[in-house]
């Protein structure tokens, strides 16, 4: 698996204008630290949709849809929850040892078509799509967008019980590298799954945080192998934003061609060795 350093915006050619609004901003959940020790330590999170990583400058993410799963699979209560204008925040206490998953899952529908020579855009749910008769529009294209935004924190030794794939949408199976055990100069290998199966040609895009303090993104970009594998190595310690997406034809809805776009976005820390 090779990675390239092109500065191409992910997926723009794949999905056309309609989906570009989905990609214009970056969603992230950022832990204050991802590796903890001691008795029931606390960790806090910022969550936002912004342009710069990891600086809130556009929209708060909203804490309501963010779910925290403990190593044993329990839902953990978020505390000190706050939704501001440009940033959401909360804290959790890690009473168990192992790896916690912090995740937000969204499912939405987007459509585009031509009308009087102009591109029209729409978002809503499938019922509305049907009742508004959008399937009849010229050049109609319907996109189902299934997106996950996640991060992980570990108290003590990392494990993967809370990170087991659900078999739905785009996910990572952590069978080689653990997201809370990443170090500079060491190869990271992730296996991407779509609906539980290894997913080929998933576009993966990795950016280091603090991008507003440099002129170029220095992104890592590439696609997964036929086994769904993506490997990369980073030389600089820091926080990284990883986003992966795939787009597949998903038949028709009410006669309109439907595409399914799945994305998985994660924030990880890479420590200096």
């Amino acid at each position: 698996m090779k990675t390239t350093l092109k500065s191409v915006v992910l997926g723009s050619a794949l999905l056309g204008v309609t989906a570009s609004s989905l990609l214009a901003h970056r969603a992230w959940i950022l832990p204050s630290t991802s590796i903890l020790s001691g008795e029931s330590p606390w960790v806090c999170f910022d969550a936002a949709i912004s342009n710069d990583l990891f600086f809130p400058n556009h929209h708060a993410m909203g804490t309501e849809a963010i779910k925290v799963t403990s190593p044993s699979g329990k839902e953990v209560e978020k505390q000190f929850e706050k939704d501001g204008h440009i940033r959401s925040s909360f804290e959790i206490q890690l009473e168990e040892k192992g790896t916690y998953l912090i995740s937000r899952h969204r499912l939405g529908y987007f459509a585009s078509w031509q009308e009087d020579g102009e591109q029209q855009r729409w978002r809503g749910d499938l019922e509305e799509f049907k009742s508004e008769g959008l399937a009849e529009k010229e050049g109609i294209q319907l996109i189902e967008s299934d997106s996950k935004t996640v991060t992980y924190v570990t108290n003590g030794a990392p494990d993967i019980k809370a990170l087991e794939p659900t078999g739905k949408g785009l996910e990572i199976k952590f069978d080689e590298s653990h997201p809370n055990d990443l170090f500079t100069g060491e190869e990271v290998a992730f296996t991407f799954l779509l609906d539980g199966q290894p997913a080929e040609d998933v576009e993966v895009f990795i950016v280091k945080g603090n991008d507003r303090f440099r002129d170029t993104g220095n992104e890592i970009e590439g696609t997964t192998t036929s086994e769904g594998k993506f490997t990369f190595t980073v030389e600089e310690a820091g926080r990284y934003w990883i986003t992966a997406s795939s787009s597949v034809d998903a038949g028709e809805y009410e006669g309109a061609p439907k595409q399914r776009r799945s994305s998985y976005t994660a924030t990880v820390e890479v420590l200096p060795l």
């Binding site: 590796i35 903890l36 020790s37 001691g38 008795e39 330590p41 570990t154 003590g156 030794a157 990392p158 055990d181 170090f183 420590l271 200096p272 060795l273």
Partner: peptide, 22 residues
């Protein structure tokens, strides 16, 4: 008290990885 000194053990970064965290 209450194991508060253990909170910073992860800062012995390499040791924490190879031994401490387990």
């Amino acid at each position: 008290k209450n194991g508060h000194g253990e909170k910073w053990l992860k800062d012995i970064r390499k040791w924490w990885r190879v031994s401490g965290r387990s």
